[in-house]
C-alpha cells in the first residue's frame, strides 16, 4: 500500500507526523492488552511477537516471585501466560502478586507460593491498584494456610503452608 492508497483506505499512515503516536499505541494495545491487530500487519508475526512478550514477562515475574514460580514448576510458564494474556503489565512485582492472589482465591496456589505471598503481605500493603508500600506498623499475612508476621521490618514465616 503506498501513501495515496493508504489515504484512500483511511489508513493512518496518510498522516505522517501526527499519527505515529496513535499507531504505536494501537500496536502496543494489540500486543499486550488484547486490542485488535492493526491493519496491514502480518497476523502470524504479530502472534509470535505477542507470545514472545508473554514468555519474556513470565521470566521476569519468576525472578520477582521465585518461590511462586518454583512451586508451579513446569506449569509456571503456561499458568502465567494464561493469566497475563490480554492483561497489560503492572510491573513484575504486582503481576506476580495479582496472580498469586488469584490462585489463592481459586485454591490452586502451591505451598511455596502461599508462603511467598504470606511473607509479602506481611511486609507490604498492596491494595491491588497502586504500588505496594512498606507497612510501617507490625503486620501479618496469610495465604493457603501459611502465616507470616512482620515486626519492625523483620519478617518471619510463622506457619508453613500444609504440604
Amino acid at each position: 500500500m503506498n501513501g495515496d492508497e493508504a489515504a484512500a483506505a483511511g489508513h493512518p499512515a496518510s498522516h505522517p507526523s501526527g499519527d505515529l503516536a496513535a499507531r504505536q499505541a494501537a500496536l502496543v494495545a494489540a500486543l499486550v492488552a488484547g486490542g485488535p491487530a492493526p491493519v496491514g500487519f502480518d497476523p502470524a508475526a504479530l502472534d509470535a511477537a505477542r507470545s514472545a512478550l508473554l514468555r519474556k514477562r513470565a521470566g521476569e515475574v519468576a525472578r520477582h516471585w521465585p518461590l511462586l514460580a518454583a512451586g508451579l514448576g513446569a506449569d509456571w510458564p503456561a499458568t502465567f501466560v494464561r493469566w497475563a494474556a490480554g492483561r497489560p503489565t503492572a510491573g513484575s512485582l504486582r503481576d506476580g502478586w495479582d496472580l498469586a492472589r488469584e490462585l489463592r482465591d481459586r485454591g490452586t496456589l502451591p505451598p511455596l507460593g502461599a508462603e511467598e505471598l504470606a511473607v509479602r503481605e506481611a511486609v507490604d500493603r498492596y491494595d491491588g491498584h497502586r504500588p505496594p508500600r512498606h507497612r510501617r506498623l507490625p503486620g501479618w499475612g496469610r495465604a493457603g494456610g501459611a502465616v507470616a508476621i512482620q515486626f519492625a521490618g523483620r519478617v518471619r514465616l510463622l506457619t508453613p503452608a500444609p504440604r
Binding site: 499512515a13 500496536l27 500486543l31 512478550l53 519474556k56
Partner: peptide, 13 residues
Amino acid sequence: AGGREAGHLLPLP
C-alpha cells in the same frame, strides 16, 4: 505508547 509498557523493544515503521 499510549500509557502502556510493551515489555520489550518494538520496531519502528
